[in-house]
Design a protein around this nucleic acid. Sequence first.
RNA 1: GUGCCUAUAGCUCAAUCGGUUAGAGCGCUUGUCUGUGGAACAAGAGGUUACGGGUUCAAGUCCCGUUAGGCACCCCA
Length: 443
Amino acid sequence: MARQDARVLKGFRDYLPEDMILRQRLTDIFRSIFEKHGFEPIDTPTLEYLDVLTGKAGENEKLMYHFEDHGGRRVGLRYDLTVPLARFVAMHENDVVLPFKRYHIAPVWRAEKPQRGRFREFIQCDADIVGSSSMLADAEGISVLADAIHAVGLPQAVISINHRKLLAALARLAGVPAEHAGGVFRAVDKLDKIGADGVRRELVDAGVDAGSADRVLALVTQQGDSASLLASADHQLADVDGGPEAVRELRALTRHLDELGVAPETWKIDLALARGIDYYTGPVCEARVESPRVGSIAGTGRYDGLIGNFLGRQIPATGISLGFERILEVVREYNLIEVPSAVADAFMVYLPDTIAQASRIVRKLRNEGLRVDQSIIDNKGLGAQLKYADRRRIPFAIIPGAGELDRGTVSLKNLQSGEQVEVSIAGLADELRALTRGVAPVG
RNA sequence: GUGCCUAUAGCUCAAUCGGUUAGAGCGCUUGUCUGUGGAACAAGAGGUUACGGGUUCAAGUCCCGUUAGGCACCCCA
């Protein structure tokens, strides 16, 4: 018989139990941080009308999975969680309380070329605040970001903060015409990657004259601590449209960060930070790690125009996106999160004479909240069953020997050390709880 | 989507200039060993050399295409 090919699509992956245990642990950490900040969960369909996803512009359509469904509708798999949020708020305006704080942990799809930390199906972890113009909202997002970095223990993660309007004002000051502002953002954002000369070349290629390009570069590469950068921007932009407002907002934001207890050494103002997404309108922020080279691991930004596309009137919004897959790459590289070796706490061995009593003990342990795998290997000896449990990396085996049961006990074997003790059946649950504490899952 | 690199057993890798039946370690199965696993020893299974085509007396090795992975673009998490 011809065998069906077993294969998966490029950029799509299976997850083994050991993968999923770690992935679930990481989403548990993020969920708990989101909820600690008062964000509430929502979900939306994976499939949306294509025009909802692409909006009027339709420019990301190339990277989107889209097709015609059986009813002839043009549909697409969601490309991010932000556009669905905008549609969600517009449709449920009467059911949500503004400012609306929601988090959303769910897969999205992009038809990109896969690389390390880049997949075609991947999890996004977003938290957004809709309906607040206050810099408190932006500060809240950065606080989530800082907590997430801290909780995972990411080494040397740096949070850079800038403001889209500040960058636009600097470009205006340098003499760049407004229609080239987008090109300036894209070019400047690559500064640490391609260097000043590379950015200059890219600016000129985009149609910016050489003098303006040099002035832009000089302005965004000013050095100094956050306060002095803001002071000098304030001075330079005093008469530039949008400049004073941007500086005022960034000052408010950084003050709130301080009030929220976000450690000052975890973030810095970076006038060259732009971020690619074109719908950002206010403060933007990005976290990067140097190693492994997976690029940006999280970003935040204010996007006051997006939701209005669905509502017909403007609603301000700001949000954060944690780069789940890339953070996971860093976690694996540095072994940052210790996860239980198996889901089960203990493995109940099958012995032909004591199966009934063993099953009753298993039921009792499960009712007490312990995770117990009962052996289904009834044709092999004790040795083979211990080996099976150990290969599953279950930490303990319970051996319900007839002699022990007569004494009201079982043997409890630590499969790592080989140590074995006789434990009373009445005290077994407490004993197991004590022994497995510390590697229990979050929440 | 574009360009470059890579693909040999479950894993990590070897195979001279294109030359006989593609090897090794680890892992796996079985036995020594039917209430006590991991060690040791012995035996064994496992390969259309990613897939498809071509050149050649002869292809894992050279050429073309496809698929998948990596890197750089693009874009982004």
